[in-house]
Computed example of a mutant assay.
Amino acid sequence: MLETKMSNNSLYDIDIEKVVLASYIAEPSLFISSKLEAKAFFFVFHKELYQALVSLYDKDLPFETALIKKELGNKFNDKFFNDVTQHNTTINIDKYENILIEFNEKRLINAKFEELALKLRGLSIPEIKALLLQEAQNMFNVSDYDLFEMEPISEIQGEKTEYICEDWLPVPKKTVSMIVANGGVGKSWIIIQLALRHLIKNPNEKVFAWLSEDPKGLSKFRANLICNDILDDDINKFSNFMVTGSEWETFHIIEENGSLNSKLELMKAKLKDYSVILLDPLIGFYGGNENSNSQARKFMQQFTRWAARENKTILFIHHADKLGKGSRGASAIVDAVRLVYEIDIIENDNEQRKFKIGKDNYGVSDLLGTKEFERIVFPSSKNQKKKRSSKGRGRR
Rank of each mutant, 00 (worst) to 15 (best):
K173Y: 01
K173I: 06
K173M: 03
K173Q: 07
K173W: 05
T175V: 02
V176H: 06
V176L: 10
S177Q: 01
S177V: 08
S177W: 00
S177A: 08
S177Y: 00
M178N: 09
M178W: 10
M178H: 05
M178L: 13
M178Q: 11
M178Y: 06
I179H: 02
I179S: 06
I179Y: 01
V180I: 11
V180T: 03
V180Y: 02
V180H: 00
A181N: 01
A181V: 04
A181Q: 04
A181W: 00
A181L: 02
A181D: 03
A181H: 04
N182S: 15
N182E: 10
N182D: 12
N182I: 07
N182A: 11
G183E: 02
G183F: 01
G183S: 07
G183C: 02
G184D: 11
G184E: 14
G184M: 13
V185L: 15
V185F: 11
V185K: 08
V185H: 12
G186Q: 09
G186L: 02
G186D: 06
K187C: 11
K187W: 00
K187V: 03
S188T: 03
S188L: 05
S188V: 05
S188F: 04
S188A: 05
S188Y: 01
S188N: 06
W189N: 12
W189M: 13
W189E: 11
W189H: 13
I190K: 11
I190Q: 13
I190W: 14
I190P: 15
I191M: 08
I191Y: 05
I192S: 12
I192Q: 14
I192K: 04
I192Y: 06
I192C: 09
I192L: 15
Q193E: 15
Q193L: 09
Q193D: 14
Q193T: 08
Q193A: 13
Q193I: 10
L194G: 02
L194S: 05
L194V: 08
L194H: 11
L194F: 13
L194K: 04
L194P: 00
A195K: 10
A195I: 10
L196R: 10
L196D: 09
L196T: 09
L196V: 11
R197L: 15
R197Q: 15
R197E: 15
R197T: 14
R197A: 05
R197V: 14
H198R: 08
H198G: 07
H198I: 06
H198Y: 15
L199R: 00
L199M: 12
L199Q: 07
L199S: 01
L199G: 04
L199A: 08
I200V: 15
I200H: 03
I200Y: 00
I200R: 06
I200T: 10
K201M: 13
K201L: 14
K201R: 12
K201H: 14
K201I: 02
N202H: 15
N202D: 09
N202V: 10
N202L: 08
N202P: 10
